[in-house]
Design a protein around this nucleic acid. Structure first.
Lengths: 124, 124
DNA sequence: CGCCACCATGGACAAAGTCCAAGACCGGGC
DNA sequence: GCCCGGTCTTGGACTTTGTCCATGGTGGCG
């Protein structure tokens, strides 16, 4: 656990938002100016492997990192401003996929993304 | 409707696979060698706006284009080889999102991605 | 004290996509 | 038939996002 990794962990910790790798880097630099992009990417990759952080790809521009890895949840995205909210739908989408639609896959995970327009953007 | 657009539409038409923009470009070039990348991107963008084609982002590397836009469906992705299958779960995930979890959003769409391992990869 | 393994660094590189200025093409009006 | 205006395509430069690699430093251990 080096100084650099601590900083990356601190950036994600607590603030329950969904940062891009670049944003993580920007905030890490604010705390530890000489940290490099490569290190941030390395560390994020390790956190993902450890299951401490989730990679989310709600848009195709950049990966986002979700510190809320320990509770299963899904995402609600504003189509206009890109805001992301965590949501907890009732029901289990995994159960909605009948065997006949599994094509022999071992299905292990589901990712649900709701899209819509947030109050802010629909007001504007 | 120019020659270039016809070619892009032809590439997507019929073959029910999920091509990346680059693959679309490669196949378009085979039919019309002087077509440029910019044109393919433009045309794909228009097809998406028209609702003729869907953008799918199952991995974060590249957008994929799904010609099966007129029938709602979701995707089953192999975590190892990236194969994509269309699936049709029972149930409606939109209905599973209670008002209390909508944060005032106008929710209009849901995208469900199942992840797993395909028979081929799990055999290997 | 010296060595070794690991890690961070920065810069180059790669992939995917966007933007822009210039030219081709097409249809309409004269 | 010819010019005009607009629209589309083109090619290339540029940006963004991410990965790779060689180098150098640091800490622990014998």
């Amino acid at each position: 656990m080096t100084a650099q990794r601590r900083v990356v962990a601190e950036v994600l910790d607590g603030r329950h938002v969904h940062l891009t790798a670049d944003e993580v880097h920007a905030r890490a630099v604010a705390k530890l100016p000489e940290i490099s992009r490569a290190t941030v990417y390395n560390t994020l990759g390790e956190l993902v492997s450890l299951g401490e952080v989730l990679e989310v790809s709600t848009d195709k521009r950049a990966k986002r990192y979700d510190p809320n890895a320990h509770q299963p949840h899904h995402h609600l995205v504003c189509a206009q401003c890109g805001t992301i909210k965590d949501v907890h739908p009732s029901g289990n989408p995994l159960a909605d996929l009948p065997d006949s639609e599994r094509f022999g896959f071992k299905v292990s995970d589901v990712e649900v993304t709701y899209r819509g327009v947030c109050p802010n953007c629909s007001a504007a």
